[in-house]
Design a protein around this nucleic acid. Structure first.
Lengths: 245, 245
DNA sequence: CAGTGGTCTAGACCACTTC
DNA sequence: AAGTGGTCTAGACCACTGC
């Protein structure tokens, strides 16, 4: 094969260019979450490179959790509906070590105008329309998480409390199913704070009780921030887990 | 080349076997932190496989941060002396976003008998001899971190307060230089707690102030736990950062 | 059985570093 | 120029899935 790099503008390895094209197809929705992408040989033919080069591009996308390989079956677009990805973004675990299944209790879902800080995190103008959701999550009857969630109204048009109450499963799966939005990664900032009166009533703790304050911004394809959360965790018998390497 | 897999006992890909042998050499100290390992072609000759197979083994070790590639120079054993790895395990950052340089203040360094919980985390018998270190870290004059550190006396023979006071740089670099111990990964469990009287005096906060409680176990080669820490962070103007993907 | 991803090879050439 | 890691190819064969 004599296909050469060309494009003297910005040099990058062939497999990086393939990776970029795959990413573009993912972002454009050419292959939906859960679906299989074309086989390595098909892609090699499409882009006129060898199978090994396509393979290396796919390798990187799988380590970023954007694609999932299944030997003998194919390569699939990652989805939050998958069993394995359900709790990818939840780092809270009981001190006992037993598995934890949280139960949802949605409280409110209303439209607000974006405050400065949230607008900044979501890279949108202050005052734009946001959907604000409040929920509590319980485990074994105890309220563990109190969370406020903000979403751009434009992308999440039609989302209502009724929608949320009817939904069973992770929110990120709802975003995929109903709003063509797949979350790719998130960043969290964590502090210890004293419970204020609102958190105290939601989590049924005394005012002043130490709580874990977790601020999360979630990103979709192309580093686009599309969700912000501020959560309070009651860590009296749970903890936040993190692996460093 | 006709070298075939053989070893019907436990089948694993060739590159995994190579990876295991490289790991064994690392653990045995055949190549020291900071040193270059043999070139890919040398290793290919040693193990009688192709360069591509050695390469794949090294690939995995670099993604685990055990080796570092430097194009044109060689492949090196990771070290905590490296600029780039200095703050690999420190997730605390100022809210301002500016870089943070912590200043060490070692308080005590004494021998104790291992309490049950710490012994369990370090997979050693209760009552074995431990070194217990206390330190405070400050930033811009303010006490930010109060930390207790436990190390097995056997491996860290001779470590004293004088050693610590003379040392400038990360503790993990001291472990490498003086105790032939390279930290590979760590696990943290995080809670929000109220400041007790000791933490309050060390961090100069009021009793009851919410603090981030960070419990860390660090592992060397072969998943051997060799250090436990319990730290309290004052997160009034700092936060713990985490990336989820 | 055909089709998928997974491994392995041998050889070519590129990019970077050092002498 | 020589030595290192980095990319790319073409082809062979293995392991797993599903018809």
């Amino acid at each position: 094969m004599t296909t050469n790099l060309s494009s003297l503008a910005t040099f990058s390895p062939l497999y990086q260019q393939i990776k970029a094209m795959l990413l573009a197809s993912l972002q454009a929705g050419e292959w939906q979450p859960g679906e299989a992408i074309p086989s390595e040989f098909e892609l090699a033919a499409r882009y006129e490179v060898s199978q090994g080069t396509v393979r290396k591009a796919i390798d990187e996308l799988t380590t970023q959790n954007l694609l999932i390989r299944k030997q003998g079956k194919g390569t699939f677009v990652a989805t939050h509906h998958e069993e394995h990805h359900q709790f990818r973004f939840l780092r809270l675990a009981p001190d006992s070590g037993l598995p934890m299944v949280l139960k949802n209790h949605f409280l409110t879902c209303k439209k607000i105008k974006a405050p400065r800080l949230i607008a900044k995190a979501l890279k949108m103008p202050t005052g734009e329309s946001l959907i604000e959701i409040e929920r509590v999550q319980t485990f074994a009857g105890a309220a563990i998480v109190f969370e406020q969630i903000w979403l751009p109204s434009l992308r999440f048009k039609g989302l209502s409390l009724a929608t949320l109450l009817a939904w069973t499963g992770p929110l990120y799966a709802l975003y995929e199913s109903s709003f063509a939005t797949h979350m790719v990664r998130a960043e969290e900032k964590i502090k210890a704070v004293a419970s204020d009166s609102i958190s105290a009533s939601r989590l049924k703790t005394a005012i002043g009780t130490p709580l874990l304050l977790v601020e999360r911004v979630s990103y979709s394809y192309g580093n686009k921030p599309v969700e912000m959360r501020i959560a309070r965790y009651d860590t009296s018998s749970q903890h936040y887990e993190n692996a460093l390497s």
